[in-house]
């Protein structure tokens, strides 16, 4: 089962990446994050069938709850509260972004297959998915000039971390839980509080208004 499903889920993750990176509206992006979160939540079940089943179930439930429900809801609520412009204003165009997404995904698969430093029991698929996701997350933070978009990028980056942490889910489930915790605390509460602060001060969520401190 592992061998069959994993490549597909990895591919799905990559596709969700592409969807997020090419979306023109914040709500679509958030939808993409939801999908990605759900896909990631399934991963522990697929990766480690039969091993410490209860723990994996807990991970699955936590993942679905936080990544699939709480986080996107909170984000959506924030967008509504601060009446943010829904259009994403990319620094780099959508078509290039899509191109970038495809290229980095390919590159990740290539790199992971190329480097044989990882132990045998590691699946190249999910690692390369993690790497591709990290590329996308970083890209979103770099290339989007909207605070919420950057938060979404950060969430995607965290998803990459989560994916990676799944590789130690069996031996050290603690770390996976910590990754999810990070989502909850870091990504949402803090970031959205920050968004509120920014909005109350600047009446805008464009990063442009946050570029006064230079040199």
């Amino acid at each position: 089962m592992k061998e069959n499903l994993l490549p597909w889920i990895s591919l799905a993750i990559v596709l969700s990446n592409l969807y997020i990176v090419s979306s023109s509206r914040l709500t679509y992006q958030i939808r993409g994050v939801v999908v990605q979160g759900l896909l990631l939540s399934i991963l522990p079940l697929i990766l480690f069938p039969g091993e410490d089943f209860i723990h994996m179930i807990i991970l699955f439930v936590m993942g679905v709850a936080i990544k699939g429900i709480i986080v996107p809801k909170y984000l959506l609520k924030t967008i509504q509260d601060v009446r943010v412009e829904r259009e994403v204003h990319p620094l780099i165009g959508y078509s290039f972004s899509l191109f970038y997404g495809v290229i980095t995904a390919g590159l990740s698969f290539f790199l992971i297959n190329r480097i044989d430093i990882l132990p045998d029991n590691f699946s190249p698929f999910h690692l390369s998915a993690a790497l591709a996701t990290a590329f996308i997350g970083i890209y979103l933070i770099i290339a989007r000039r909207n605070v919420v978009s950057q938060i979404i990028g950060y969430l995607v980056l965290e998803n990459a971390g989560f994916t990676l942490s799944l590789s130690v889910a069996v031996s050290q489930p603690l770390f996976v839980e910590m990754g999810i915790l990070l989502d909850l605390v870091g990504g949402i509460f803090i970031m959205t509080i920050a968004v509120n602060h920014i909005y109350s001060e600047h009446e805008s969520l464009s990063v442009k208004s946050l570029e006064r401190l230079i040199q």
Partner: peptide, 25 residues
């Protein structure tokens, strides 16, 4: 301006800390 400083601190350090997380893993 402190809000801007805080935002940058948050976003830059958070990205850093995700890498830290990956390193820990």
């Amino acid at each position: 301006l402190s809000i801007e400083a805080m935002w940058k601190y948050l976003i830059v350090c958070s990205v850093g800390i995700v890498f830290g997380f990956m390193g820990t893993i």
